[in-house]
Write a protein that binds this DNA or RNA. Structure first.
Lengths: 218, 218
DNA sequence: TAGATTGTTAATCGATTAACAATC
DNA sequence: TAGATTGTTAATCGATTAACAATC
């Protein structure tokens, strides 16, 4: 692969399915890091995937393996970390400190994955001013000014359906560039803003419909 | 469409992207249910989708619209409910009553979406015997016998990476047919078991990589 | 009727999978 | 060297999108 291709390659967006599998490879490699080298066949077998798919995903991170040997586990892990930006931790605000919001505030794993939740926001005066899992909770009124002052780019929404879109709009106006939305409603914004809608009802629909289909088959 | 096609159609699995969008249409329709009829163009515009995609999704639920008028909002909502089985509530057990597990135990929305979490399970003796959000917490030892006795088909995993696979295996042996996994590791099982892996690291990878790409573009 | 909308068949696009050459 | 594995190009498959006929 020549330099021209590399440039072209880097301009092409990475397929979303690949992005979703890379952390799974990393989680898997963590468990088996006694081994020096691993082949994509082994990874695929253990994760119920196709070897060719693993190989293609890995090639997108830019790492090269050794024929007859496989990939260096260490090298592969750190290539995934670099590729996904886990070494450049980004700050985020979380809005809506209900039970799901609190759980996410307290999740220790995010910093390893490049995300640092700085603070939480809520309208509930009994929460404002307290700390939850060591993160300060501010009144939602302060959200726009703090987003601007601290140049926060990522917002996490754990809000009721009724106000999620409105608060999302406020945050985007204040300069937020990416929204991770756990509210039970789809958030829509200007095209250039990244929105990732995590919809529990959507996932549950997949689970229960597949279960129905499975039960009907027998 | 004749009866033969209907039968053929019902045997074909519904595409997963469609299953994920149907609940989003429902959440959207709830907000605007003053209107009698709605066109797929309107739905698509409001949800940033393509009209043809909405039309195709809707057609898979079996509902028919009226040319020049659109779809009856009421009819469409109840068709989605029926199609996704929201009227046949299924029981589930949740394993791992940490902060995420507790949040999910307490989420009121699931019953509307056809899921009733009956109880929680944990190894922590300070939790066993208590109630969290009105759900009893049992020791994980009792999991297999209760799954068998109550014929539970759905398990929700909110466990640390270190024990998630092992407990999943136990549950499948006891008769669980579907696993909804929030643990930070991919769960693999026998082919006929439905597994839905919700991996926060995977989602975060999509969000942060897209944000990187977006920032590099400018 | 004219026109807007649905329903269906065909074309396109992107991800997965297959085939095979390159490598150690 | 032979053989196992990677890397790359081509084929396949499924979802999205386009085109257009059917409908009220």
């Amino acid at each position: 692969m020549n330099v021209g291709n590399l440039v072209k390659e880097s301009l092409k967006a990475i397929p979303e399915p690949t992005l979703r599998r890379l952390p799974i490879y990393h989680q898997y490699l963590k468990k088996i890091d006694k081994e020096d080298f691993i082949s994509c066949t082994t990874i695929a077998n253990d994760l119920c995937l196709e070897a060719i798919q693993v190989r293609k995903d890995i090639s997108l991170t830019g790492i090269v393996g050794k024929p007859q040997v496989g990939y260096s586990v260490k090298q592969l892990m750190s290539a995934i970390e670099d590729f996904l930006g886990w070494n450049n931790v980004m700050d985020a605000f979380l809005v809506g400190v209900g039970s799901l919001g609190s759980a996410i505030l307290g999740y220790k794993g995010f910093e390893k994955y490049g995300l640092n939740i700085l603070a939480g926001f809520d309208v509930d005066d009994s929460k404002v001013g307290t700390e939850i899992h060591r993160k300060k909770i501010y009144h939602i009124e302060k959200l726009p000014s703090l987003i601007k002052r601290m140049k926060i780019k990522i917002g996490i929404l754990t809000l009721p359906a009724s106000c999620a879109q409105e608060i999302a709009n406020t945050m985007v106006e204040a300069g937020i560039k990416a929204l991770w939305n756990f509210s039970p409603i789809k958030i829509t914004t200007r095209e250039e803003i990244i929105v990732l809608n995590e919809n529990l009802a959507a996932s549950l629909a997949v689970l229960s419909k597949k279960l129905q289909e499975q039960q009907n088959r027998n």
